[in-house]
Amino acid sequence: MPETGYLLAALLTTLVVTFALRAAPFLVVERLRESRIVGWLGARMPVGIMVILVVYTLRDTSFAAAPHGLPEAIALAVTVGLHVWRRNALLSIVGGTLLYAGLLALLS
């Protein structure tokens, strides 16, 4: 186990860098709040960022080996279907996740 001093220094390093990344852009954006392009981008970014995070969480899926990403595809489709149908976030997330866990258990 590394020394406590090193561990704290390492964790503080991440704190400073992460905070700078989260906070610094506001210095610029707060002044641009009224600009058209920032408003236009701000309205269209969230959906794309979420889609990128979806792909990111599925990045370890193997399409070459069995079951060829089938559990992921089915669970994703059911999550989307549930959410379009019922518009209940908790239901869509719990339903999709339990189905995925069930598919994995079936296939193993």
Binding site: A43, P46, M50, L53, T57, A101
Partner: peptide, 22 residues
């Protein structure tokens, strides 16, 4: 195994909600 799919489902749901807004 498989409970980590909750994070995928979460971002999926939020993408759909964000899409509905725009």
């Amino acid at each position: 195994p498989g409970l980590d799919f909750a994070l995928t489902a979460l971002f999926t749901v939020l993408a759909i909600d964000a899409f509905r807004a725009q």
